[in-house]
Design a protein around this nucleic acid. Structure first.
Length: 154
DNA sequence: GCCAACGTTGGC
DNA sequence: GCCAACGTTGGC
C-alpha cells in the first residue's frame, strides 16, 4: 500500500464535505497539474491511503485521512463548459485530466498544522515542506505517514 | 526549443 | 490581499 497527501482549499471542498457525502465517497476532481495528474493516473492504487490537507486557509495543515476506492478515470469536469475546471483541450476521446475516488476514513481530533509539521526533523524531507512546492497530489513515505499519524493521536 | 509574459498556487 | 515561486503558453 502506498501513501499520499492531497490538498484542497476548504472553502471549496473540505474534510466535512467528504464525510457528509453519500457513502462518504467522492471524486477528487479538478487537478490541473501534470505531475499531480500523473501520480493519480499512474501510481495511485485502490486501497492506498491519503492525508486530506487544507490549503490556502487560516491554518493550513493535515486534517484527516482517506482511502483510494477507485483508480483513475477521466475527469469529467474538464469537459463541462460550466465547470470552473473546464479545459477545452480535453475531449472525451482524448481526456487530458484524470481523477480518483476517495472514501473518508478519519477526521483528526488533533489536526496537524503546517507550521507544526515544520518542527520535526523526521519530516524535513517531505515534498510538502520543500520550498516552493505547489503540488496538490504527492506521495508520502511510510515513515512520514506513521510519524504524522502518531502526532494526530497526541 | 528558447524564453518572456502570463496565470495560478498557497503561505502569510 | 500581497506576492514569491512556479508552471504553462505561445511567438519567434
Amino acid at each position: 500500500m502506498r501513501f499520499w497527501l492531497m490538498k484542497s482549499e476548504p472553502s471549496t471542498y473540505n474534510i466535512d464535505t467528504l464525510s457528509q457525502a453519500p457513502k462518504q465517497t467522492d471524486h477528487w476532481e479538478g487537478v490541473r497539474n501534470y505531475q499531480a495528474r500523473n501520480f493519480m493516473r499512474d501510481d495511485m492504487k485502490k486501497g492506498d491511503h491519503a492525508f486530506f490537507y487544507h490549503s490556502n486557509c487560516e491554518t493550513p495543515g493535515i486534517v484527516g485521512k482517506m482511502e483510494i476506492v477507485r483508480e483513475s478515470t477521466p475527469d469529467f469536469s474538464a469537459l463541462d463548459p460550466e465547470s470552473p475546471y473546464y479545459d477545452p483541450k480535453s475531449t472525451e476521446q482524448n481526456p487530458r485530466w484524470f481523477m480518483v475516488s476517495v472514501r473518508f476514513l478519519e477526521k483528526f481530533t488533533h489536526p496537524i498544522a503546517l507550521h507544526t509539521l515544520k518542527n520535526y526533523s523526521a519530516l524535513h524531507q517531505m515534498i510538502l515542506l520543500k520550498p516552493g512546492n505547489r503540488l496538490s497530489v504527492m506521495p508520502v513515505t511510510p515513515a512520514e505517514w506513521q510519524f504524522i499519524l502518531n502526532l494526530s493521536k497526541e
